[in-house]
Design a binder for these strands. Structure first.
Length: 796
DNA sequence: GAGCACTGC
């Protein structure tokens, strides 16, 4: 009950600030009598003090104290629904000069300690059910239901800890919405969908998979009884392909919409459309404060409703001038916190594995230099490519008298939470992947984070108690939000999905943030070349088959094309291995020589084994070893990635069956396998130049074999097909395999002409074309026979 | 002689 009372206090503060917004009688506003009767005596007193201070400040406009700032902050958060203007940031302090925290204990921390008192004798389910009324959202139940009844689309700003994800579907079910259809709630991540569903099943008191269930890739935990269904956003998108009007649903909740994943962005437009033809369908878009207004505008000025959350205060400190060497600043800050601050773990956000390893070694050295004075620190690195057993260390509590320092990538921003973190060090950078449609190249760039990310990172320190966040930058220099994925991704797959849904004009599709036009154009061109679309841009039979496979269109074309070469069994293995996000080869810093040797074993025996065939061999060897984890360790293979490959392969196998492609195997005919690869990847061809580099056959550009390829440093093959291009220090082809140029004509006669693969051309003409088409003439000083594509216009 | 941030179907 205590928290409900606390909540009254916050609510009253919020009303007070609202009066300021509306220019109402602020001074005349009193703590509501109704609350008073509920036993909020203490809260009333505190409210009066807070109000007095607030009014005084309004009159004088003087600088505020931290306590006031915190209250302001709380109240400010509540203002979003009135379209908060830019208000001066008052929380940030200066440099690393700390005031002590006496008198800055957030009210909810006292409440927290007594939260479950007296509940120990009850069952987990009973406890779960009782806990419901302690959630901040509880006080809004009726108002919320009324709004949902009256508005077809509602944008909900539910802050962290408000309980919206677990409660809203239950309220809707209790209000009878499930009589008309299911309640679907999407999440951007699999783990979230699973854990939230399990939590709700417990609260409702049913078995998971019965009335409450979840649906994620590789795992459908629902039944005919299921009325509350949690799922990943990509899963709902797949369902839309089968059920375009979402007839079996009465409510769709898009949770964490502010994350703007590729799938949510497409879902927005699709559900908006469905809502027009289905007036009975209710849409709830749940977002963070920053983007709420934008969502509301997109959904034709939908109502915004705010549900305050419950969080601990986080004190934020920042540096006025960013240091050039921020890794050194990180180390100094860790040491400073360790020596001057109270017990509590430190979380550091870094951009990648390399930075993490550097900081780890340097920090260890620094601690050695400092000698034995002070307590010990335990360094825990965490990033997604770190093998699972090593990741586990992060979740173990630090032994008594020591402090844990977690060095993490962005993985700790949303994907996983680490308990016990009290301090966050945020240098303000992350790696962002962006795709250049002109060159067809991906690049991973270190970029400043957005304000939204900064807030999220800071919040990681206030999960279990008040926290502190040390920002090595000035928040004012940041952009408000990150560029949505749809504006920096390869859209081939998106466009194919839209076409399959019958959307003809992708240029005028109702994107919330439209992707660049040439990105759409490139996607259309590629799909046409692959035969997935016809001349007028309509989806073909081949395209329909390709959509079935949840992989990139070039991969799905490769799978569909494998039928002809009688090697579908090998091809789905290769496709699965290529679809695994992370590299399957593990290369720890101190054992690189061994790791490289183990990897090269997969290229032995036969000549011209490319990276694709090597991946096939890795998978088959693993299978022969009965999918052994032990084997993975010996061969420096990531067993996590292998298991994922197996899941994907199983799924592809099922789909192959579904579209009626026979499962055929031709393990010894490497040429057949290579031809099948080319059936999907023919646009990715490259030819050797004299200096050892390669040149793309279409869209001339110099590219290189990736250093992690088995072909790197080997005697070069004249013609290659590659899986993808990445821009790091150079333009690299990742995963390459040798091929024969005549296959290009054989497999893609509509794309390649004989002159594309000939290399006997008059030298003069050749040179003229080259000089006209590239500004970097010096790189091919001596290359005179290399092929330049004259088919396409050269770039200006 | 250099590198794989993070998700999802």
């Amino acid at each position: 009950m205590r928290e409900v009372i606390e909540f009254r206090y916050k609510r009253a503060l919020y009303e007070l600030v609202k009066k300021t917004e509306d220019d109402d009688d602020v001074e005349g506003y009193r703590f509501p009598d109704a609350y008073d009767q509920e036993g909020c005596i203490d809260q009333k007193k505190r409210f009066d003090v807070a109000k007095e201070r607030y009014c005084e400040r309004r009159r004088s406009g003087r600088v505020v104290t931290e306590q006031e700032a915190w209250e302001d902050h709380q109240a400010q958060k509540a203002r979003v629904r009135f379209g908060a203007k830019d208000k001066k940031q008052v929380v940030d302090g200066y440099e690393f000069v700390f005031d002590d925290l006496t008198g800055f204990v957030e009210e909810s921390s006292e409440a927290e300690t007594g939260k479950h008192r007296g509940c120990y004798s009850k069952t987990a389910a009973e406890k779960a059910r009782e806990g419901r009324e302690f959630l901040p959202i509880h006080g809004y139940r009726e108002e919320l239901l009324k709004l949902i009844e009256e508005n077809q689309v509602l944008v909900i700003v539910g802050e962290t800890g408000s309980g919206k994800t677990t409660q809203i579907p239950q309220y809707l079910q209790e209000a009878g919405y499930t009589k008309r259809g299911k309640i679907g709630c999407t999440q951007p991540r699999r783990v979230a969908a699973m854990s939230v569903a399990s939590r709700v099943a417990q609260e409702v008191g049913v078995k998971l998979g019965h009335e409450v269930g979840y649906s994620i890739r590789f795992e459908d935990c629902t039944s005919e009884k299921t009325v509350i269904k949690y799922m990943t956003d990509g899963m709902l998108l797949r369902e839309l392909l089968i059920e375009p009007k979402l007839d079996s649903y009465s409510v769709i909740i898009i949770d964490e919409a502010h994350e703007r994943t590729l799938s949510t962005d497409i879902l927005f437009a699709l559900v908006k459309d469905v809502a027009k033809v289905r007036p009975d369908l209710r849409l709830i878009i749940s977002s963070a404060t920053l983007e709420a207004k934008k969502f509301s505008e997109y959904f034709d000025s939908a109502r915004i409703y705010l549900i305050p959350g419950r969080r601990y205060p986080v004190e934020k400190l920042f540096r006025k001038c960013p240091e050039p060497d921020y890794l050194e600043t990180v180390i100094r800050t860790v040491v400073q916190i360790h020596q001057t601050e109270a017990i509590g773990d430190i979380l550091v956000f870094l951009t990648g594995q390399e930075e993490i390893e550097t900081v780890e070694t340097n920090l260890k050295r620094r601690m050695m230099d400092l000698g034995t004075k002070g307590s010990e620190i335990i360094i825990c690195p965490i990033y997604s490519n770190l093998p699972t057993p090593l990741q586990a260390k992060v979740f173990e509590p630090a032994p008594k008298g020591t402090r844990k320092v977690v060095l993490a990538t962005n993985i700790a921003e949303t994907s996983l939470t680490i308990d016990g973190v009290k301090y966050v060090i945020d240098p303000g950078y992350c790696k962002i992947n962006s795709y250049n449609p002109r060159t067809g190249m991906e690049s991973l760039l270190v970029t400043p984070i957005s304000k939204a990310s900064a807030a999220q990172r800071a919040g990681r320190s206030g999960r279990t108690g008040p926290g502190k966040c040390f920002r090595l930058y000035n928040i004012k220099d940041l952009e408000p939000t990150t560029i949505p994925e749809i504006q920096r991704a390869n859209l081939a797959s998106v466009v194919l999905t839209l076409k399959s849904l019958g959307i003809q004009d992708v240029f005028n599709f109702d994107f919330m943030d439209p992707p660049p036009e040439n990105a759409l154009l490139k996607a259309l061109e590629l799909l046409y070349a692959l035969g997935a679309l016809d001349e007028i841009g309509e989806i073909t039979k081949v395209g329909e088959r390709m959509v079935e496979f949840p992989v990139d269109p070039m991969l799905s074309k490769m799978i569909v094309g494998s039928e002809k070469y009688k090697c579908s069994k090998e091809i789905i293995t290769i496709a699965a291995m290529l679809s695994v996000g992370n590299s399957v080869f593990y290369r720890p810093k101190n054992q690189q020589v061994f790791a490289d040797k183990a990897r090269m074993d997969f290229y032995e025996d036969t000549e011209n084994v490319g990276d694709h065939i090597a991946l096939l061999r890795v998978y088959n060897s693993w299978k022969e070893e009965n999918y052994s984890t032990q084997w993975c360790c010996e061969k420096f293979i990531q067993s996590k990635s292998m298991k994922r490959a197996r899941d994907i392969r199983d799924q592809l196998l099922g789909l192959l069956n579904k579209i009626g492609v026979e499962l055929t195997s031709n393990p010894n005919d490497l040429d057949a396998i290579k031809k099948a690869i080319l059936a999907g990847f023919f646009p990715h061809s490259a030819k050797l130049q004299k200096n050892g580099s390669y040149r793309r056959v279409k869209e001339p550009q110099t590219v290189y074999v990736h250093p992690n390829s088995g072909l790197f440093g080997a005697s070069p093959s004249k013609w290659l097909v590659y899986h993808e291009l990445v821009l790091t220090t150079k333009e690299y082809m990742r995963h390459t395999t040798e091929m024969k140029p005549e296959w290009l004509i054989e497999i893609a006669p509509h794309y390649y002409k004989l002159k594309d693969i000939e290399d006997t051309r008059p030298k003069k003409t050749q040179r003229r074309i080259e000089e006209a088409s590239t500004s970097k003439v010096d790189t091919n000083k001596k290359t005179r026979t290399s092929k330049v594509d004259t088919n396409k216009k050269s770039k200006r």
